[in-house]
């Protein structure tokens, strides 16, 4: 199953209202009128794209309509998909590898966004590509987080570095990096405790982890991935902004896209903060982490599936 199929599979059975709306609008309308544009606006807002970015997209569309570049509802939809894809960077955004190993990847995010699970899946993905991976359990705060991560490390066959609960997370990260360097491993994955982006002390702790890694190896961490729950609304912008300020986030992992949430807020994040989405999470299985394809995502944002099986593309452009 490719990404798009999986995504559609995940989105099955949902969005009845959304679908009813767009279906009615695109399927039966010959002209672009106010009802149609309002429907598009509603669709974008319901997908958590957010008001400013929705308004931006609608203005772009309006200009096209006035310039006669877009004439029919189908063309309008196609245009919007293209716009969204281009905001998201069109092509897959690959991982940033260190010139010489190990490559250090730091996972950050708020509580419950899915850091540990995503890290486990990423470890598996990289190990399957033949990389030697070490996982650092730097979430020393949450009860049993270390044990949870250890299970994931075992599943993917990655090496595992742990300290006691309550230990200094920067020290765990440091040890893992040292181990990787001395043994010639390829990738260091650092799991961190979930923290709300407004907690100054906890953000300082994160900065320290980053400093310690950078001191030990030039250019490390090579990736700082913000793990974002697709169910999150406009607060995701605040998360992206503050985590980026604190630790220079390089990309996003968008998790839980197998639910009914569309994760449209990443469009706003891409527009305002120019942060690319690098991976998406589509379930609890170890293989459910996929690269992010902007075009497919844009497609899925406007495509809908009927409640009882039978997928239906609203607009085949």
């Amino acid at each position: 199953m490719n990404f798009f199929q999986r995504l559609k599979e995940g989105l099955r059975k949902t969005r009845e209202e959304f679908s009813r709306h767009l279906e009615a609008l695109v399927g039966f309308k010959r002209e672009i009128d106010e009802e149609f544009t309002e429907g598009l606006e509603e669709a974008l807002i319901l997908a958590d794209v957010g008001l400013p970015t929705t308004q931006y997209l609608m203005e772009q569309l309006g200009q096209q309509i006035r310039a006669r570049g877009v004439r029919t509802p189908a063309e309008a939809l196609a245009y919007l998909k293209e716009e969204v894809a281009s905001l998201l960077g069109r092509e897959v955004s690959p991982l940033n590898w260190a010139p010489s190993p190990p490559t250090v990847i730091l996972m950050v995010g708020v509580n419950g966004s899915g850091k540990t699970t995503s890290l486990g899946k990423l470890a598996f993905l990289l190990a399957r590509e033949g990389k030697k991976v070490v996982v650092a359990a730097a979430d020393t705060f949450r009860a049993a987080a270390i044990d949870q991560l250890e299970v994931w490390a075992q599943r993917s066959g990655a090496a595992f570095i742990r300290h006691q609960p309550g230990a200094d997370p920067a020290a765990v990260a440091f040890d893992a990096l040292q181990a990787a360097k001395s043994r010639g491993w390829d990738v260091v994955l650092v799991d961190t405790a979930g923290r709300l982006q407004t907690k100054v002390n906890l953000m300082e702790e994160l900065k320290k982890i980053k400093r310690v890694l950078a001191k030990e190896q030039e250019g490390a961490p090579h990736e700082v991935l913000l793990v974002l729950d697709a169910t999150t609304g406009q607060n995701a912008l605040s998360q992206a902004r503050l985590f980026k300020e604190a630790v220079e986030v390089t990309g996003i992992v968008l998790t839980k896209l197998d639910g009914t949430a569309k994760g449209g807020v990443v469009v706003a994040i891409a527009r305002e903060l120019e942060l690319p989405v690098k991976f998406i999470g589509l379930g609890e299985g170890i293989e459910d982490l996929q690269p992010f394809y902007p075009r497919d995502f844009a497609e899925a944002l406007f495509t809908d599936i009927r409640p009882e099986g039978g997928e239906k593309q609203i607009c085949s452009s």
């Binding site: 319901l46 958590d48 169910t231 999150t232 609304g233 995701a236 009914t260 949430a261 807020v265």
Partner: peptide, 12 residues
């Protein structure tokens, strides 16, 4: 329910 939930809160 997470206070950060977006539009999907209703669906859930």
């Amino acid at each position: 329910v997470d206070a950060m939930t977006g539009q999907d809160a209703v669906e859930v």
